[in-house]
């Protein structure tokens, strides 16, 4: 075992030597890449925090604990708390149907699930205005029953669900396809009920993909701007999510406060990246474990 491993490692190193670029090309390319990524990723990241703290910590703290900011955070959390579980359930159901069964029009269904990715966020907001707005299909009915969807929380939640629609399903479908259905069939043969099989066999097998999908869904749900902007009506303290609150503060030339709230969203993005990296690492590890299991058997 030791010998083969060293041999593989050796082959890797050696192949790189026989087929690698001259040192000056290598360092030139690395420098160019690092410069590009610094310009487009690190500088904007640093700018958020610098601008947020430009007027000192007291202004920063005040901007975050201001009442409208707090209500924006609350609304953002609510929207995510509704959108994420709904899309999670949808993702599992869609992946189950698509990955474990054969039926006509499967590829077309996958394309339809991907559709929200191809739609501009602004249009995502617009479609709900056309459905539930004053001039919308259900507009009059909603007024008669005194239900507000557009310029209210339900519209924001709907728009959030739309823009995060495919994330979980997209992660799960290829994973569950790759798993095959032998294990589920084995569970059934051993007498497990459908739900037990789902809970004890299917979901543990796709655990990391599931978590990955949820992380992406959550990040997008909390950060969505365009779609939510169309349906929210920008009512301070009532229908403003955090990104919309940032916009309002910014347009009022209250830059320090705008960047202060933005810095919270940035921290959320960084946490998302850390979690994402961790999950990818775990998924790779469990993949390696499975592979070794196959070889050993």
């Amino acid at each position: 075992m030791h010998a083969t491993q060293s041999q593989q490692y050796a082959a890797k190193i050696a192949s790189r030597r026989a087929t690698s670029e001259p040192v000056w090309v290598r360092y030139g390319l690395i420098t160019l890449t690092v410069a590009f990524l610094t310009l487009f990723l690190l500088v904007p990241l640093a700018a958020v925090f610098t601008e947020a703290l430009r007027k000192g910590w007291s202004v920063y703290i005040a901007a975050i604990f201001e009442a409208d900011a707090l209500s924006a955070m609350w609304l953002t959390l609510i929207a995510a708390a509704i959108a994420v579980p709904l899309n999670l359930v949808f993702g599992v159901a869609a992946a189950w149907a698509i990955a474990k069964f054969d039926f006509k029009g499967k590829h077309f269904l996958i394309t339809l699930i991907d559709l929200p990715f191809a739609v501009s966020p602004v249009i995502a907001g617009l479609i709900y205005v056309l459905m539930f707005g004053l001039q919308g299909w259900f507009g009059e009915w909603l007024i008669d029953h005194d239900i507000k969807v557009i310029f209210a929380v339900p519209g924001i939640v709907l728009a959030t669900i739309f823009v995060t629609f495919p994330f979980v399903a997209r992660e799960l479908i290829p994973l569950m396809q790759a798993q095959g259905k032998e294990e589920e069939e084995a569970a059934l043969v051993l007498g497990a009920s459908g739900l037990k099989m789902l809970w004890h066999v299917t979901l543990p097998n796709v655990k990391w993909g599931l978590i990955y999908g949820v992380i992406l869904t959550n990040a997008r749900a909390m950060g969505e701007f365009g779609a939510v902007s169309v349906v929210s009506g920008h009512i301070r303290g009532l229908t403003n999510t955090m990104p919309l609150h940032v916009e309002i503060l910014y347009n009022e030339y209250n830059y320090a406060a705008a960047f202060a709230v933005a810095s919270l969203l940035t921290l959320l993005a960084l946490v998302t990246l850390v979690l994402k990296t961790y999950v990818e690492w775990q998924a790779a590890r469990s993949a390696v474990r499975n592979e070794e299991g196959v070889i050993a058997s």
């Binding site: 955090m242 940032v246 969203l265 993005a269």
Partner: peptide, 16 residues
């Protein structure tokens, strides 16, 4: 960090 543009809310990217 390459995934930052996926994770960072677009409004934040815009003002930054």
């Amino acid at each position: 960090l390459v995934d930052l543009p996926f994770a960072l809310p677009t409004a934040v990217a815009g003002i930054s």
